[in-house]
């Protein structure tokens, strides 16, 4: 359970992160606002409450890891990392610019706090499996979190990794499925339906819970690491709204990968002032 006052703090962080995301993408002139805004609460919960991390020492071996398998949500991750102190907030405005440490998709060699190189969908979860295996081999206590998109589950490699994680009994791995229902070409149910998620993941041997992906209380309770060592990997299906927080972007497929112009950016930032 979240403690008193924590909820307000997290809500405020999410609001600030959303404003960063929009300004970053607006300044860059390109990027993916829809899927960045849908996972803001997930990332804020992880980085501000659940994960054991040391922003001043990003390579700390015992740190919990977050693998952003849906790499196009990089702006949300960068904004959270900056707010958490991994690098200065001012650096966010260099997103996608030549020479920037903030690449269009996550680059572990450039950005402090970024764990893997993603952006080609379907690959992050396999890497998370490798990290969880390494942790177990070393008897390390870290937990691996992996944020996967719902459209991303159309990639076959996801299911190879899902199978492997259960086979290797990786209780130190938690997947958060950002289930916003939309992909570039339309609703996931129309393009190539990867549902039903809970049934599929459970059939592959995972523990599954469903939460409101914008509700901090539910996210916190579901993302806390298991109290006792577990041998079953866990998926948290987070029901989310693509473009969450900006009226004209919410549930609109065309805002998957488009930057708002100056006027629309102004409107969006205004909406997020309160």
């Amino acid at each position: 359970m979240l403690k008193d006052g924590q909820l307000q703090f997290l809500q405020e962080k999410a609001r600030v992160v959303r404003r960063h995301v929009l300004r970053m993408i607006g300044l860059a002139g390109s990027g993916h606002p829809g899927g960045s805004l849908s996972c803001v609460e997930v990332l804020v919960t992880l980085y501000f409450t659940v994960m054991r991390i040391r922003p001043e020492d990003p390579g700390w071996p015992e740190r919990d890891r977050l693998v952003l398998s849906k790499g196009h949500a990089a702006p949300a991750l960068y904004a959270v990392l900056a707010e958490r102190g991994y690098f200065p907030v001012e650096e966010l405005w260099t997103l996608r610019k030549l020479g920037s440490r903030l690449q269009g998709h996550p680059d572990m060699r450039k950005t402090p706090g970024v764990e893997v190189c993603t952006g080609s969908l379907g690959q992050g979860l396999s890497q998370a499996v490798g990290m969880a295996l390494a942790g177990r081999m070393d008897g390390a206590d870290f937990h691996v979190y992996c944020l996967v998109g719902d459209g991303e589950c159309e990639e076959g490699q996801i299911w190879e990794a899902v199978m492997a994680a259960a086979h290797y009994r990786l209780g130190n791995l938690t997947v958060i499925l950002d289930h916003n229902g939309l992909q570039i070409d339309g609703p996931i149910r129309q393009v190539l339906c990867p549902e039903p998620f809970p049934e599929k993941w459970r059939a592959f041997g995972w523990e599954c819970v469903e939460v409101d992906g914008h509700d901090f209380g539910q996210l916190y309770d579901s993302l806390l690491r298991p109290e006792r060592p577990s041998s079953v990997p866990r998926v948290v299906v987070a029901h989310t709204v693509k473009g969450k927080g900006v009226s004209y972007m919410e549930n609109r497929v065309e805002w998957h990968g488009k930057a708002p112009g100056p006027e629309l950016l102004r409107i969006a930032l205004e909406e997020l002032e309160r």
Partner: peptide, 24 residues
Amino acid sequence: RFFNCGIAEQNMLGIAAGLAASGK
């Protein structure tokens, strides 16, 4: 220290990446 990844080469190379990123 041996992992048979089954007939799933793409996942195997990804797992290898994760292991390498963790010092193996």
